[in-house]
Design a protein around this nucleic acid. Structure first.
Lengths: 349, 349
DNA sequence: GGGACAGAGTTAAACGATTAAAGCCCTCTG
DNA sequence: CAGAGGGCTTTAATCGTTTAACTCTGTCCC
């Protein structure tokens, strides 16, 4: 493997000159020499040694990813997006996965509110990233976690798909509130008047945003906000069943259901079928996430597709911009979702 | 951040001694001094600098993963398994994903036989792993690819979920052949006699192994091997539909279907429903992979669960053993699959 | 007594890059 | 023409480990 020294010898200059050329410090080297050096580097197939660079300058082209669980649909797709731009921009990815779900499962816990328990693990990952000289960190999480305080260094950090309270943090997300409004508006346009909401847990920030979106649409339409129509689940299909049962037991049944994820929607569908309610007519239904399952249940579930891959890409682009010393265009960014029409709800814009 | 030098000063010895202690070169240092050094290290919270170590010795506790597409079910779960043991054994993971599927999609290609096209990409990843001093590489692929030749170094390599021709390679896989035999035997025990096979592509090694398993069961039972009962798909639900249509058009219809993955099985189910064939009675059906979808189609699809997470774990354990200079217990390992009984086929053992 | 040897620890040279500081050479100015 | 200044290049220290080679001390045996 060719080193800086080899290139320097071949080009007849010092290693310093080669280093300057390689790092595009143009004001340091004349154009002629630079060209000569680049030639030599190409001929030898020179690639800088990451370890040496990291050791010396504590900076490399490695992006550290801290993810809550790579096995989940969302994280998975976001990581794919990060991977794509990293690839394109010649960055590498170091994955630090917290394995959150399988740990929760192993410990027999039901809830995700474990922020404190995982600070050590996160700190470890950050430490490793620092040591390989990662140029920045992307935190990919579904839960609402604030790790900014764990970074003692000034290494840039971008949150993907998770919310933080600190307005100085960089964040890429989807427009939970807006798309919820759009979905409910479409239901209203269809003449639906009692729109039930099967929500995620109260403490979830995305669930909260979607709730606001739901309420906004109803209020703008001058419709009544009936608190009975809002039921909370925990994202599981089982909890969707329970929620739906509760809603259908109301004196005035809802004629539409907005579910905050597809699993709960599928659970709700099971109950509706049991009750002999015709889905898509008596009750229209929309899910959230647009997981693969949607196209395979019967009737096929209309859902909201989150641009996960794009979120990953944007997060990576932001991070790379920050790492290069520039500024990212804005702190908080929300990418638009797309409503995917299937059989449970005819959406027209 | 504390360095070797700090620890050495605190313990009143040279950096060399500290290094020896940290690397458990016990014959170099007396027990008393070792204890003193370890104390000092703990007090300072010393963590070795990965970059420096990699630079000097070209060896670190980083496991490089080359994966074909992190977004696929199989790869995803295997990586999770690798992650788990890596975590436990204090190794780190560097992920080099080839993004194969999205590239294939982008280029508008239909087939996966692109081995040659991706040698360069793989070489790049290997190069990066070498530079951060990865202690070994795990190749996670669904397709049959041989990258052994791409490693010029003597860095250990373990294949997870992909087959290679070279018997000297380390490989962890599932027992495709045996479980196929078991599944078909169970069908025979139920009195089924014309068992249709919806296979993966001819060139796929796992598909071939499953085919052998299917044939073995039939032959052992003294049943007739009717080549008309074997149809090839390309793993997609669409191809499952086509295959099923072909099989159901036979003069003597099959009374059982063994599908080599769940997507094709779901496609087949669609056709069976169309034809008014009662699934689970007229025709029993089994899929392969046990993806989440299986529990949600109607009737729920019986399938074969591949121990993906365990494959990842074993692969990582093997690699760590090899990296530590020891030998891994055996070159090729096949973990047993589990048949998950649902509604399309009653399996009893 | 002295050479051989073993055990325990130290010295110092790498590994491959970055970068402040110094050096060289040329031009410009008073 | 001396001195300043600027553009380009080199020198050499440095990052934190690893490890071959060396030193030192004590023991043993002929």
């Amino acid at each position: 493997m060719a080193t800086l020294k080899d290139v320097a010898e071949r080009a007849g200059v010092s290693t310093a000159t080669v280093s300057y050329v390689m790092n595009n410090k143009e004001n340091k080297v004349s154009a002629g020499v630079a060209k000569k050096v680049r030639m030599a580097a190409r001929e030898l197939g020179y690639q800088p040694n990451i370890a040496a660079r990291a050791l010396r300058s504590s900076r490399s082209n490695i992006i550290g990813i801290i993810s809550e669980d790579i096995a989940t649909f969302q994280v998975n797709n976001i990581v794919q997006g990060i991977n794509q731009t990293a690839d394109r921009e010649n960055y590498q990815i170091l994955l630090g996965d917290l394995n959150l779900n399988s740990r929760i499962w192993r410990e027999g816990r039901q809830d995700y509110s474990l922020v404190m328990d995982y600070r050590d693990e996160i700190r470890d990952k950050v430490e490793i990233f620092r040591m390989v000289g990662a140029c920045g960190i992307i935190y990919v999480g579904m839960h609402d976690r604030d790790i900014t305080g764990l970074l003692q260094t000034d290494i840039p950090l971008v949150y993907a798909y998770s919310y933080t309270k600190n307005p100085g943090d960089y964040m890429v997300n989807n427009d939970n509130q807006r798309v919820a409004t759009r979905a409910v508006e479409a239901m209203l346009r269809q003449g639906r008047r009692r729109i039930g909401l099967i929500s995620g847990p109260v403490e979830s920030v995305p669930a909260y945003k979607r709730l606001i979106g739901y309420q906004t649409a109803l209020m703008d339409a001058g419709a009544v906000l009936d608190p009975e129509l809002i039921v909370y689940g925990d994202w599981s299909d089982r909890s969707g069943e329970l929620a739906c049962r509760k809603l259908m037991a109301l004196e005035e049944r809802p004629d539409a259901l907005f579910c905050m994820n597809d699993w709960m929607a599928v659970g709700a569908m099971k109950v509706l079928k049991e009750l002999g309610v015709s889905i898509g007519e008596e009750v229209v239904l929309i899910g959230f996430d647009d997981i693969e399952l949607c196209g395979f249940v019967e009737p096929a579930l209309t859902s909201i597709s989150i641009p996960l891959v794009e979120i990953g890409q944007r997060a990576a682009e932001k991070l790379i911009a920050l790492a290069a010393g520039g500024q990212a265009c804005c702190h908080r960014e929300e990418l638009p979702c797309r409503i995917v029409e299937r059989e449970t709800f005819g959406y027209e814009d």
